[in-house]
Each structure stands twice: as C-alpha cells, then as structure tokens.
C-alpha cells in the first residue's frame, strides 16, 4: 500500500492553515485540510487517510469521520479520475438537467453514482451549484461548465478523456496561497 504522507508543499500549507485560528482552535482547519487530502490521495478519503489527517491535526479519528461523512464534496469511496457532478435542482432541472444526466449515463455506460470501467469517470447528480442563470450546468474539479447542450457535453467528455488527468477541486492555475 502507498505510504500516506502529505507532500512537503502540502504539509507546509497544512501547518500554515492550522495557525490561522486562535490558540487551541486549529480544528477549524479540518475541512480545508480534508480538501487537500482528498486531492492528494486519489480523490477520496479512505479510513487510512482520515486517520492520517487526525494524527497530523492531533485530533481524534472520529472527529474526522463525522465531518467527512456530513459534507457532500468528500468522497468516502473511490471515484474515477474525473468526477462529473451534474446540477439537478430547480432551474437546471427546468432547463434539461435530466437530459444531460441521461445522455451521460448512455455515453459513459454507467448509472449515476457509478464509475466507468476504465476508471476515468464517476457520474454524480448534485444539488444546486449556484449557476441557475447559466443552466443547465455541471462541475468537474474546480471548473464550472455552463449553458450546456449535448454537443458541449460530448466535447467535454472527449477532452477529459484525451487529457486523462485527475481533476480535483483544488487544482487551479494560481499557486495555493490559502
């Protein structure tokens, strides 16, 4: 099994984050640190990763589990390299989110919640992402894809496939400054 340990850069960031809060309140950094951990350890939070985060933060493992299991952006099961999150609520739904979801299910040959056999894509339907004026939309990693139609969805899937890279919420062009 791969050694679970933050890279030097991530560890420095984690240490900096814990110092942003008043004395004794460093648990506040848990959610930001879990984002870093998820990005670094294959896009999901295994029990081992959560235990590791607990040890780095010097808190109980249960404190990590209870938070990780509450928030929808933390994956407690392995996911594909690209987690495609299609907004399914309200305006997106009014303007064709179900078509986008059905199209992706057919195209990727998986159902919502499943991962494609090549490990490239996981499909998820999520609640409102605050992009109602540009509906329908979906999110992959940090990026929003808005005003979708089925051709745009096809083009996106092809591009992601040819790039073959893992997408996470934290990978953005600007260096991390948190």
């Amino acid at each position: 099994m791969k050694d679970i340990r933050f890279s030097e850069e991530s560890m420095a960031l984690v240490q900096r984050m814990m110092k942003r809060y008043p004395e004794g309140k460093h648990k506040s950094a848990l959610i930001p640190i879990l984002h870093i951990a998820q990005a670094e350890f294959d896009g999901w939070l295994s029990p081992e990763v959560m235990n590791y985060v607990a040890s780095v933060m010097n808190i109980q493992s249960i404190e990590v589990y209870e938070v990780a299991s509450f928030y929808s952006m933390f994956n407690l099961k392995p996911v594909g390299k690209c987690l495609i999150e299609v907004c399914r609520t309200s305006s997106c739904w009014l303007l064709g989110a179900e078509d986008v979801i059905r199209h992706l299910e057919k195209k990727l040959n998986i159902k919502v919640g499943e991962t494609s056999s090549d490990g490239m894509f996981t499909l998820k339907s999520v609640e409102c992402l605050g992009s109602c004026g540009t509906a329908p939309m979906l999110q992959v990693g940090a990026d929003y894809y808005e005003n979708l139609n089925l051709e745009k969805v096809d083009a996106l899937v092809s591009r992601l496939k040819s790039e073959g890279k893992r997408k996470t919420y934290t990978d953005l062009p600007e260096p991390r400054t948190l």
Partner: peptide, 26 residues
C-alpha cells in the same frame, strides 16, 4: 481569511455555518 466549506446547504444557516467554521458537522 477565506474559509472553504465542503457541500452542505444547511451551512448557509448562520449557526450551522459557525459550527462548520469550527471544523464540525453543520
């Protein structure tokens, strides 16, 4: 500072938000 959440509508409720900001469930 900017504090990032992790996907929970309830954290828009102000006391849930504070719980989340303290590193807990919302």
């Amino acid at each position: 500072y900017v504090q990032i959440g992790a996907g929970a509508y309830i954290c828009g409720e102000e006391t849930a938000l504070l719980e989340s900001l303290e590193g807990k469930r919302g």
